[in-house]
Amino acid sequence: MKRREFIAAAAALLVSSRGLRAQSRRYRLGFLAVGDGSGRTLNQTELALFDGLRNHGWIDGRNLIIDYRFSQPPDRLPASVAELIALSPDVLIVAAPQATKALKSATATIPIVFVAVADPVGLGLVQSLARPGGNITGLATYVPGDFVAKRIEILRELVPGASRFAILANPGNPMHRLLLADEVPSTARNLGVVLPIVQAITAEELDVAFASAAAQRADAIIVFGDTLTVVEAPRVVALAAKHHLPAVHFSRQFANGGLIVYGPDFADLFRRAGGYVDKILKGAKPSDLPVEQPTKFEFVINMKTAKALGLSVPTSLLLRADEVIE
């Protein structure tokens, strides 16, 4: 009997030790981020990912190892992708469409969760929102069809009589190319407005783009969301002020000096991404996790900037705003 008891106790100890090792395993998460422009630090919006992970019990340095690489400047992207893949992470997180396409091209096996990709179906990243297919899923940033029109509607209320709205786009951004080919022309026809396109791929080209918008006598400008404009947000805001162009921006980074911010709550998207990571680390497949769209939007008006531009903000806009910066 003693021998049997010893064998049973040893077996129980073995099972217990295996369980402890499984519980103490640290998973590896690779994060291909936009960053704050320095190429060394996450921006404030991206840091919300940590809140989302903590909400599901995942702590960096405890049961999770997070490796960071950055997609900016653009010539850094290929090396950043290769370095993350070489680390063989359990899950990859990526922000922005260019970086997402690069990461998807680099691996068909490591699960990928994207954040801040406008139209993943149109870009060919997933088969459909409900059934992504492959090794990728995540959070989209808009509902196709009303992206440009919604911003024109806001600017028309703010600048009565406006009919010429410049659009700042990055021709290197695949999502921008889709919008310029389809939604922008149809919106111009439907609303009877003129939408001159000004483009920038580099920070220096932003100066030329804003000067071109002013030369074409734009009444206002719509700044498309992009890695370049996010990283160069202070420069974009300063150029809009220099050329006296009322501007509507896409994300919270522009609220400091930018006239209007209207777009999804990106911090909320990064927090929700933590839930995707949790499900995948617990065995779910990306192909079975539907792509989600924004549920929270931010509408911010900067009254100081409005006054500097000589604009009177109508009550209709003030009542709809989530925040009014005095």
Rank of each mutant, 00 (worst) to 15 (best):
I301V: 12
A211W: 12
V300L: 10
V248S: 14
F250Y: 15
A33C: 08
T45W: 15
R252S: 14
V313C: 12
Q127V: 02
L317Q: 08
R25N: 06
S71R: 06
E204H: 11
K282F: 08
A200Y: 03
D60N: 15
P120S: 02
N55D: 15
T202W: 00
R26W: 09
V15M: 14
F266A: 09
P144C: 00
A284V: 03
S71T: 06
D268N: 15
L32K: 03
L259F: 11
S287Q: 13
T229R: 10
H56D: 14
K296R: 10
M303V: 10
H176E: 02
P294G: 05
T137V: 01
G35L: 04
T202R: 05
V94D: 02
V159W: 06
L20G: 07
E204P: 04
R25Y: 05
Q98Y: 05
V208M: 14
V324T: 13
F254E: 08
G30M: 04
A203N: 12
G263M: 04
D268P: 09
A82T: 03
K307Y: 05
E5C: 01
L259E: 00
S212F: 04
G172E: 15
S212N: 13
G257D: 10
A116Y: 08
K2R: 12
A267G: 15
A86Q: 10
A181S: 11
T109W: 06
L318N: 05
I197P: 13
V313Y: 15
V223E: 01
A220F: 11
A220M: 05
G52C: 00
V184H: 00
L139Q: 02
L289P: 04
L281S: 07
L309H: 07
H243C: 00
S24W: 07
D75E: 14
P120H: 01
R131C: 00
A284F: 12
T45C: 05
L155V: 06
L155E: 03
V34Y: 13
S287H: 04
P286E: 00
N170F: 00
V248P: 15
L42C: 07
A10T: 14
S71Q: 13
A22Q: 15
A86H: 06
T202H: 04
A215E: 14
V231Q: 09
L123I: 01
G52E: 00
E326L: 08
E326S: 12
A241L: 12
I152G: 03
E83Q: 14
L129E: 00
D278I: 02
F254Q: 05
A95V: 09
L84I: 10
V198L: 05
L87P: 07
D219L: 04
N55M: 12
A12V: 02
R54H: 09
V117G: 00
R69L: 04
E153Y: 13
A238P: 11
L180A: 13
A95Q: 09
A306R: 09
N173Y: 05
S316T: 15
A166D: 07
L269G: 02
A169Q: 13
P286R: 03
